[in-house]
Amino acid sequence: SPISQSQFIPLGEILCLAISAMNSARKPVTQEALMEHLTTCFPGVPTPSQEILRHTLNTLVRERKIYPTPDGYFIVTP
């Protein structure tokens, strides 16, 4: 029987999409709110552990794709 394939999207890209959507909705993007958003909006995607989430967010900050503030994470705009 054929095996169904799913699209692979890197966690960093999913986080950027989620942060962008939450920023547009003016929702604060904390790590907890981000986990909740991922569970709700990406039900088929396994939720990352806190450690993996933190590591991926730090990587995105180093890559200058997002930036942290006391009010949460935001997408870097050119």
Score class of each variant (00 low, 15 high):
T30F: 08
E63P: 00
N58L: 11
I14L: 10
I19M: 03
P2F: 15
I52F: 13
V29G: 01
V61C: 14
L60G: 01
V45F: 15
S20N: 15
P46I: 13
R26M: 06
L34K: 00
E63I: 03
L15Y: 03
Q5V: 09
R62K: 06
S6D: 14
T47C: 06
P70N: 14
M22D: 01
H55Y: 04
A18K: 02
N23E: 06
L17C: 06
S49C: 08
P68M: 10
C16N: 07
D71L: 06
N58H: 13
P2Y: 15
Q31P: 13
P10Q: 08
L15H: 00
H55F: 09
I19S: 00
T69L: 04
F74N: 02
E13P: 08
R64A: 10
I19G: 00
I66V: 10
P68A: 15
A33D: 05
V29L: 01
R54S: 13
I52S: 05
V76D: 06
L15D: 01
S24Q: 13
Y73G: 06
R26A: 11
E32Q: 14
P70F: 07
T69N: 10
S6R: 08
I75K: 03
F42T: 15
I3H: 11
I9L: 14
R62P: 00
S1L: 04
A21C: 05
A33C: 04
K65E: 04
K27L: 06
R54G: 15
P2W: 06
L60D: 00
E13K: 10
M35F: 14
C41T: 06
P46C: 08
S1H: 06
R64I: 01
K27W: 04
T56C: 09
A33N: 15
M22F: 04
H37I: 01
L34Y: 00
I14T: 10
F42I: 13
C16G: 03
K27C: 08
E32C: 04
L15P: 00
L11M: 10
T40S: 12
T56G: 09
I9D: 10
T77R: 15
K65I: 03
N23G: 05
D71K: 15
T69F: 08
V61E: 10
T40V: 11
Q5E: 11
S20Q: 13
C41M: 14
G72S: 06
T39M: 06
P43Q: 09
T77E: 14
V29S: 08
R54D: 02
Y73T: 04
V61A: 14
L57H: 00
P78I: 02
A18L: 01
P70S: 13
Q7I: 08
N23S: 06
A25M: 09
T77F: 08
P70K: 14
S24H: 05
S20C: 09
P70Q: 14
E36S: 12
Q50H: 11
P43T: 10
V29T: 04
P43V: 08
T39N: 14
R62T: 14
L57Q: 00
S49T: 04
L11N: 01
K65W: 03
T40D: 08
T30S: 12
A25F: 07
N58M: 07
P10F: 10
I52H: 13
Q7T: 11
N58W: 07
T59F: 13
I52K: 10
Q31H: 03
L53V: 12
I75A: 10
L38F: 13
P2M: 13
T40P: 01
T59R: 12
L15V: 14
I75S: 14
L57C: 04
P46K: 03
E32S: 10
T30Q: 13
T30E: 05
I3W: 01
P78D: 01
L60P: 00
I14H: 14
S49I: 00
E36K: 12
A18F: 01
E13F: 02
V61K: 05
S20A: 06
E36Y: 05
L34Q: 00
E63D: 12
S49H: 03
T56H: 15
F42P: 09
L15G: 00
T69W: 02
I66T: 02
S4W: 04
M22E: 01
L17A: 12
S1V: 02
P43Y: 06
K27H: 06
K27E: 09
Y73S: 12
P28C: 06
L11V: 04
R54T: 03
V45G: 06
P2E: 04
P48I: 11
H37E: 06
M22R: 04
P10Y: 12
S24R: 11
P68W: 09
T30Y: 05
I75D: 05
L38R: 00
P68S: 15
M22P: 01
P28H: 11
P68Q: 15
T59C: 15
L34P: 00
S6I: 05
E36H: 07
M22N: 02
R64S: 11
T69G: 12
P70M: 07
L17R: 14
T59H: 14
N23K: 01
S20D: 06
P78L: 03
E51M: 04
G44H: 11
V61T: 13
S49E: 03
I3V: 12
R54N: 13
I75C: 13
S49R: 03
P48K: 01
P10E: 10
E63R: 11
T69H: 08
Q7M: 15
T40N: 05
K27M: 06
S24L: 08
S20P: 01
S24N: 15
I9T: 13
C41N: 11
K65M: 04
L60A: 03
Y67L: 10
R26K: 13
M22H: 03
R62M: 14
P70G: 11
I14E: 07
L57V: 06
T40K: 10
I19V: 05
T56K: 09
K27F: 04
V29D: 00
L34H: 00
P68D: 10
Q7R: 11
Q7G: 15
Q5C: 11
E63Q: 14
T56N: 05
Q31G: 08
Y67R: 13
E36W: 04
V76Q: 12
I66F: 00
Q5P: 05
R26H: 07
C41Q: 02
Q5N: 02
L38I: 07
Q5H: 06
F8E: 11
T56L: 14
P43E: 12
E32L: 06
H55I: 06
L34R: 00
Q7P: 11
S4D: 15
S4V: 09
L11Q: 02
N58V: 12
Y67T: 09
A25Y: 03
Y67V: 11
D71A: 12
S6A: 12
V61H: 06
I9S: 15
P70Y: 08
R54I: 10
V61L: 09
P10N: 15
P70C: 09
